[in-house]
Amino acid sequence: MLGYMLNRLLVLLLAYLYPAYECFKSIEKNKPDVEQLRFWCQYWIIIAAMTVWDPFGDALIGWLPMYSETKLVICVYLWYPKTQGTKYIYESFLKPYISKHEPEIDRTLSEFKTRAGDSAALYFQRVLAYAQTRSFDLLQVLMSQSIQRPPPQEPQTKPDIKAAAATSSAGKKSS
């Protein structure tokens, strides 16, 4: 377990954090070197492809000994200047494959964007309709409570004992 956690930490540091910092430095130079920027763009394309492949690779060959360590070594191989791993992997594998399938990829992405936009619009409309319905229901409940509220009763006053006694004694004298 400790080995896995240490390897994962090293992958995060050496495959993501360090290259991200180097990419930042390349971008923020006063006059960025185009070749350096090209290198880092190619690196991130490869890392993205590896990240997409990772769940499948883990499921299929993750049981092999040193699999995680091999991924770490590949990541260092990619950015280490003397090996030119990024250039080799990009030019030999990714560029030919993506170039060959670029029209299909573009069409699929376009369809996905359209479907995602349509789904988001439909979902937003449903949420809005639900919110309107619930707001209207709440307004109806509030209105019905204000209409059905009984009128306030006037407080009952205690009858004046002297006046009641005078009225009753006047009634007895007249009879």
Rank of each mutant, 00 (worst) to 15 (best):
Y21W: 02
P155N: 13
A59E: 11
S135K: 06
S146D: 03
P19K: 04
A49Y: 03
D106W: 14
P159Q: 07
Q125C: 14
E91F: 06
T70W: 00
E69V: 06
S99P: 09
T108I: 15
G57F: 01
V11A: 00
P103D: 00
P19V: 06
A59M: 07
D54G: 13
L60N: 05
E91V: 02
F24V: 00
L12I: 15
A121D: 07
A121I: 06
R107G: 12
M66W: 09
F93Q: 11
D106S: 08
L139W: 03
F124G: 14
Y123T: 14
M50I: 05
I105T: 01
A48D: 07
M66S: 12
T108S: 09
L37A: 03
W63R: 10
S174W: 12
D106H: 14
K172G: 05
L142R: 06
K100W: 04
Q42G: 02
A163L: 00
D33S: 07
K31G: 07
A166W: 15
D33F: 03
T114I: 08
A48T: 12
S168R: 13
I45K: 10
P19W: 12
L122T: 08
Q125A: 14
E154S: 12
A121K: 08
K162Y: 01
N30F: 02
L142W: 06
Y97K: 09
Q148I: 04
K82T: 14
A120N: 03
P65Y: 05
L64C: 10
K172T: 06
V11T: 02
C23H: 07
L12A: 12
L78M: 12
R8E: 06
E22H: 10
K172F: 03
Q145L: 01
E111I: 11
P32Q: 03
K113F: 13
V127H: 10
I105A: 08
A49W: 05
Q145N: 10
E154I: 10
L72K: 12
Q42V: 13
L14H: 08
G117P: 02
Q153C: 08
L14S: 06
K100Y: 01
I46W: 00
I45P: 04
K162A: 06
R8K: 15
S175E: 13
V141S: 01
F112M: 15
R8C: 02
L142T: 04
L37M: 02
F124V: 15
S92G: 11
I147G: 02
K87A: 14
Y77P: 10
F136I: 10
S99K: 05
S144W: 02
S68M: 09
S92D: 11
